[in-house]
């Protein structure tokens, strides 16, 4: 699984970091999303999908594997 987060879109809601804290973090200064990994372990798959679903600006994209 590959995950990407669009830091331009991000409004620092923190939903992703709540849904999957092992994968998403917030920048200390700005609150903008920071990925801890872009290849989350299988056990975090459900949390990553939750994060993508609750992100208010749809800034998180999940794909089966890195595209291209």
């Amino acid at each position: 699984m590959h995950v990407a987060a669009d830091t331009e879109k991000c409004i620092s809601s923190g939903h992703c970091a709540m849904a999957a804290p092992e994968v998403f973090d917030q920048d200390e200064e700005t609150g903008i999303v920071r990925l801890r990994t872009d290849h989350p372990a299988a056990e975090h798959e459900a949390g990553v999908h939750d994060a993508a679903a609750v992100c208010p600006v749809l800034a998180i994209t999940v794909s089966a594997e890195r595209l291209g």
Binding site: I11, S12, G14, A17, M18, Q26, E28, E29, T30, G31
Partner: peptide, 15 residues
């Protein structure tokens, strides 16, 4: 909107 909101968002992070 984004310019003003970003002045506040650091104060409302989860941490």
């Amino acid at each position: 909107h984004a310019r003003q909101r970003r002045m506040l968002s650091p104060s409302f992070t989860l941490r």
